[in-house]
Structures are given as C-alpha cells and as structure tokens.
Simulated assay, not measured.
Amino acid sequence: MNSTDKIFTVSQLQNRLQIWHNQNQTIVFTNGCFDLLHLGHVDYLEKARSLGDKLVLGLNTDASISRIKGPSRPLQDETSRARIMASLLFIDAVVLFNEDTPLELIKIVQPDILVKGDDYTVESIVGHEVVLARGGEVKTVPLVKGYSTTNIVKKIEQQLKLK
C-alpha cells in the first residue's frame, strides 16, 4: 500500500466509512495542520488511534492554514503534508478540508470518537455537540510538553539570526 492510497476526497472517504461501519469498526477522528511533523504529533496521533479501530485525520488545506496562522504559513504544502501524514502506520485516512474548522467534515464523518489534545476542554472542541448528540464520545489525550511547530520555527529563526 502506498501513502497515496490513504488520502481521500470527501466522497471517497464516505464510501470507505460505509465499509468500516459495516465491519463494526470504531471510527476515531482528529484534525490539524501538521505543518512540521514532530514527536508531539506522533505521540498524539498514536494515542488517538489507540482509542478505536480506524483513525481519520482531517487536514487543513494551505488556504485554511494561511487564514488561521498568517501568510507565512504553511511551511509545507498540503500535498506534502497529506503524504507525510498518510505514511504513518496509525493513520487510516487523510482528508483535506478548506474551512477554518472541521465542523462540516465532522458532520460527514460522524465519528464514534472525536479526539483533540489536552490543551482543549471537551466543550471547546469543535464538533463535540455533533458527536455527543449521536451517542459518540469526545476525548482529550495528553500532549508531550515542549513540542510545537511554532517552537520549532522560532528555534530555526533564532539559529538563522546567529549566523
């Protein structure tokens, strides 16, 4: 299997979700930008996947990231980010979304479990109402402290200033 086999359009994902639901698979959903993959991301995603049978990752498009984080981001284009994320063993599907939040995608995916890091409260997680209303669960998982793309970017900038 190639990493590209795990990158889906919304309609392709809907077909795959139907298969997984028919197999009584527990669908876990999370989302993010994942601009520079680091240990914090890997740990978080492994923990998210351990909560169910299949992990669906909603990945912000380049346009979405630029609106949220500013014109200097993303550092890597969406095709690169999607391939990198799809190459991870514990991710079963990657789907891009162009909105600022994954709410519409969550309505389509209808995950059994919605997950974010413990820097969120359940009530602050976008889509929690959708998941809870259909009897699903919303969970937070502990994050590895000190790891963030923003911190990595700052460190690189500092190193460049020293040269």
Rank of each mutant, 00 (worst) to 15 (best):
L51T: 04
K107A: 08
N15V: 08
T150Q: 09
L89I: 11
F8Q: 07
R67F: 00
F34E: 13
R73K: 14
N24L: 06
H38E: 08
H128L: 09
S72A: 09
I108K: 15
I65C: 02
Y147A: 11
T150D: 12
Q159T: 12
P111L: 03
H128F: 11
I125V: 02
K116F: 03
H21M: 12
V42K: 05
R16F: 04
G127T: 01
N31T: 08
Q12R: 10
Q25A: 12
L89K: 15
L88F: 10
V144H: 04
M85G: 03
N98K: 14
S87F: 10
L114H: 02
I108C: 05
L75Q: 11
T149C: 13
L59A: 01
T26Y: 03
M1P: 14
D92V: 09
E78H: 01
K145D: 09
N15H: 11
V153I: 15
K161Q: 14
P71D: 09
G52W: 08
Y120T: 10
L89W: 13
T101P: 03
T150E: 12
V28F: 12
Y147S: 11
G127F: 07
D119N: 12
F97A: 07
T61W: 10
K107G: 00
L17V: 11
V144M: 03
E137L: 10
R49T: 02
G136T: 06
E137S: 14
T26M: 13
N151S: 15
I108S: 04
L57A: 03
L51M: 03
H38A: 00
H38S: 07
T149W: 14
